[in-house]
Amino acid sequence: MSDHHFPQTTEPLRVAIRRLRWFRTAFAQQLAEVTAETGVRFTLDDRKLAAAFVQWLRHVEAQKPGDRTQRRAYFDFASGLMLRDLLRDLPITAGPLPLDADLSRAEYYWPEGFACTVFCLNMHAAVVEQEFDASTTTTPKFFDIRHWWSFRENVAEDANTAIGFFDVFVGLEPEWQIPDSFRLRLDRALIAKKNAERLSA
């Protein structure tokens, strides 16, 4: 997976990413990096990308928390939501695979899903680093093809599951029931914390 290189901006990334033109440039740049690493070329549909962007923007704006202590959890959630909206509208189409492509690797098994996921993981890592001076990790499950079989199959049935898979890839506890609700995610995290405190008391 490539390092997170994004286009220059004088604005914080959390602001720049909410501008369609920057979002598009950043996405296209990441696709070019995936192409350089895998040899798979992509065609980008700007209209579908704009549709995904508008959907994502509305969802994240609608669920923005008032409490600043919830910002980190919100950025994690917004990244998963971005993956959901990209995979739902799928604004890219992969070209032919290289002759020696290994289909047991995610980038060749599902090139479009892989490219969108890499973009969201890198964007999440860059924002978390900038906002919280913290680093993120990708779990071994990201490199396990069995997870990608399940990921692709589940997303085909219900795009919302992409949020849960994103959480799995960054090492968070996934919410599978209603993954697109930030409020529910917070409530569940609060209950888990209380249960843990009760057990340790």
């Binding site: 369609l20 033109r21 990308l49 704009a50 549709a51 962007f53 508008v54």
Partner: peptide, 20 residues
């Protein structure tokens, strides 16, 4: 919009209009 160069903003605005 915040960027006042129509040549760069309008393709994005047109795609946004299509999305809406």
């Amino acid at each position: 919009s915040d960027d006042h160069d129509l040549t760069v903003t309008l393709p994005a605005c047109a795609n946004m209009a299509l999305a809406l």
